[in-house]
Design a protein around this nucleic acid. Structure first.
Length: 701
RNA sequence: GCGCGGUUAGCUCAGUGGUAGAGCGUUUCAUUGACAUUGAAAAGGUCAGAAGUUCGAUCCUUCUACCGCGCACCA
């Protein structure tokens, strides 16, 4: 055996050995592996290389998969690659920008083809990285989120939901990103608290408070609480004449309990086209709505002299005008409000009314709530159950249309005459059934989460695939805690809606991987750790241990190079334990006679194994890795081996043979327990032990 | 504002109703022997603060403070 553990050579060699063995594919496991155990890999974004967070989830899922495989399960870990709609399109747009091009100057087809080529090129590197980290996933089942069957089934689901009344076309207020020229769902926005000014403006006999004077040109409704005593002389529906930005306006009084009497003056005017609250009120009272700001974030002709101005610069100028008109009562400078921003570019979202496809969430959310409350789906850590339920109990309808090309086309026809939208999977319809207007193809694509939400089903070939029957429902969904809203609920919902079964019974959520000081990694801070570079320096096994030990579910992890170095030493330790024992193998025909000490040590090995088994079954990787680490280093190496040295050095005897045999047995047992955590070094040592029939990857735990 | 989490060794973090743990760092000694070292040992903690439950609280309960994070239709 080489005196040094040369991980670079060994990692490559053994990953090839595993791939060649076919054991990543559950169908090729020995027949004794009967009961399926399934994990669906959250598909990494195909447009780039893996980051530290990926390394963590690959390690976690690989540990479970290897463990279950060794426990005799028909273990399936199905990998994937995500086209990552909006994300990838943005990456590509930046690339175009650098080249002095723009997506708005390309046809959708051209753009789609270019992004496809770009993504497929990068996908290879992503897959290379996944392999590098030792993932024992079944590559023969890999799915790409834009595979033909994935597209087809996603579109079928859309049609089915439409037929079931769960998808509708609505002219509703959506989150509009003026930079990216697309609508976004609620989870694709970030709420940022900002200091701004609150303007108190005179509106006829009232004073209204607003943070956005630039939207107020067309305001012609005044809203107040029905039981506000200050305004009881006005009745719902009363008309008043008001001198306003564009001259005289006839305003209508609206009484609605949505108004907070304690905020401002308890009176507001409304801009339904650009505010969620206002839109809701307008819908309720069937009021007129009018667009003030265009899709690029500039004022429309209704703003008269301000037409064409960006809203940011228009605000102060409009306030100046209001001041000249004597309409500004006061300005509160210390107002802080919450602004929604595009989660990618952080530009403010402009709420806009736009015809879009929506999913009716309430009945679907109820399915998910029931499944979680009845314990069909469990969360690790448990407190995420509360978060999940809170989210499900407060859903709003989900906008699934995106105005980008990089995604799955919405298979529908639109009638511009009456606003009707109809799913059309076979591209057959040409005339509107309502108004006989001409239909055009919907140019929008689905929100990525609409297809990702069906991922466990799609990977397994829902509805008729063999795998679907065999491996669905899956066992555990392991993903980042940041996806508790974006992804997990949608998978539960689609699973229940389409199959009446939960897609997985356990959700394991890991935290973020931060830098050594616990700060979030970011390019601007320059503290991004590249996992592949680390594996080249310290080996994959070392990185895996560093990501697992001391890391509890749901909690962020600080990853330092020192820690990885520590576990690199652990690998060296394992290697040297093996070297020592292999150089002290049984070398005579004398029948071994186990001493009390031998029996005690073998019993301890069994006890440790039982403990670790219990811990892994609970998905407690922190404790289990900690236990195995301490057993191997501080019990096996420091105590047991040390105490056996005199016996090994002694004359040939039954006692010496027993010492040799006992040490080998403990080594074998330890290697098996170590294998899920540090697969490479254990596989290599295993191959060097006498009389190996199988690689350790399919040895029985 | 509401919700969730955290506060434990110099740093990063585990953990438990009954003498407080790891990795890295620090100090001392031993050692080239399976060990790109390793082994033995040491220093270092009112387990954020207060009150309560308990024979006993770092752990359970309540409150407070500070730090994170998430959510939010007070315009």
């Amino acid at each position: 055996m080489e005196s040094r553990y040369d991980f670079k050579v060994i990692e490559e060699k053994n990953y090839k050995l595993w791939e060649k063995s076919g054991f990543f594919n559950p169908d090729k496991l020995p027949a004794s592996h009967k009961k399926p155990f399934t994990i669906i890999m959250p598909p990494p974004n195909a447009n780039g290389r893996l980051h530290a967070g990926h390394a963590l989830f690959i390690t976690l899922q690989d540990i479970v998969t290897r463990y279950k495989r060794m426990r005799g399960y028909k273990a399936l870990w199905a990998p994937g690659a995500d086209h990552a709609g909006f994300e990838t399109q943005i990456v590509y747009e930046k690339k175009l920008e650098k080249e002095g091009r723009s997506r708005f100057k390309m046809t959708p087809d051209e753009l789609f083809k270019e992004i496809m080529a770009f993504t497929l090129e990068n996908k290879k590197y992503m897959e290379e990285d996944v392999r590098k980290l030792g993932a024992s996933c079944d590559w023969s089942r890999e799915k790409f989120t834009l595979d033909k069957d994935v597209i087809k089934e996603t579109q079928n689901t859309f049609k089915k939901m439409y037929d079931d009344g769960l998808v509708y076309r609505g002219n509703r207020i959506v989150n509009w990103c003026p930079k990216h020229q697309t609508s976004l769902s609620d989870v694709e926005t970030e709420s940022v608290e900002e200091k701004s000014k609150l303007y108190y403006l005179k509106y006829g006999p009232f004073t209204i408070a607003t943070a956005r004077p630039e939207t107020k040109f067309a305001d012609k409704y005044v809203v107040m609480h029905p039981s506000d005593a200050r305004y009881k002389k006005w009745k719902d529906g009363d008309k008043i004449e008001v001198n306003w930005l564009n001259g005289k306006v006839t305003a209508t009084i609206i009484k609605d309990p949505v108004i907070d009497m304690d905020f401002g003056t308890g009176v507001m005017t409304m801009t339904p086209w650009h505010s969620q609250v206002d839109f809701d009120i307008a819908e309720k009272h069937k009021l007129d709505i009018e667009q003030i700001i265009d899709w690029r974030g500039k004022l429309l002709p209704i703003a008269h002299e301000f037409e064409g101005m960006k809203i940011g610069e228009a605000r102060e100028k409009i306030v100046e005008k209001l001041e000249k008109m004597g309409l500004v009562e006061k300005i509160d400078e210390n107002y802080s409000n919450v602004l929604k921003k595009c989660y990618k570019c952080l530009n403010p979202i402009e709420p806009q009314v736009r015809p879009q496809w929506f999913v009716k969430m309430k009945p679907l959310a109820e399915l998910a709530i029931k499944a979680v409350k009845s314990g069909e789906v469990k969360f690790i850590p448990e407190n995420y159950e509360k978060i999940f339920l809170y989210w499900m109990e407060n859903t709003i309808d989900w906008n699934i249309s995106r105005q980008i090309v990089w995604g799955i086309k919405i298979p529908a026809k639109i009638c511009d005459k009456c606003g009707n939208g109809i799913p059309d999977l076979e591209d057959k319809l040409s005339q509107c059934e309502n108004c006989s207007g001409e239909l055009r193809e919907d140019s929008d694509t689905f929100d990525t989460w609409f297809s990702s939400g069906q991922w466990p089903l799609l990977v397994l070939g829902y509805p008729n695939g063999k795998d679907f029957k065999k491996y669905y429902p899956t066992d555990v969904m392991e993903t980042g805690h940041d996806l508790i809203f974006k992804w997990v609920p949608r998978m539960v919902i689609f699973g229940l809606y389409l199959t009446k079964k939960v897609p997985f019974h356990t959700v394991y959520l890991h935290g973020l991987v931060n830098d050594a000081q616990g700060r979030k990694m970011s390019k601007s801070k320059g503290n991004v750790i590249n996992p592949i570079e680390l594996t080249e320096k310290y080996g994959v096994d070392a990185l895996r241990m560093a990501l697992i030990v001391g890391n509890t579910p749901g909690t962020d992890l600080a990853l330092s190079e020192d820690k990885i170095r520590g576990y690199r030493n652990f690998g060296t330790k394992i290697w040297n334990i093996a070297r020592f024992i292999i150089s002290n193998l049984k070398d005579s025909d004398i029948k071994p006679k186990l001493s009390q000490e031998d029996k005690k040590n073998l019993k301890e090995l069994e006890d440790v194994k039982a403990k670790i088994t219990k811990l892994i079954d609970k998905y407690d990787f922190n404790q289990s890795s900690y236990e195995i680490y301490h057993y191997v280093w501080h019990t096996f190496a420091d105590k047991i081996i040390e105490s056996y040295k005199p016996r090994l050095a002694a004359e040939e005897s039954a006692g010496r043979a027993a010492a040799q045999e006992t040490l080998l047995k403990i080594l074998e047992g330890s290697l098996k327990m170590l294998h899920p955590f540090v697969p490479f070094v254990t596989e290599e040592i295993w191959s060097k032990l006498p009389d190996r029939k199988n690689p350790i990857i399919i040895e029985r735990w």
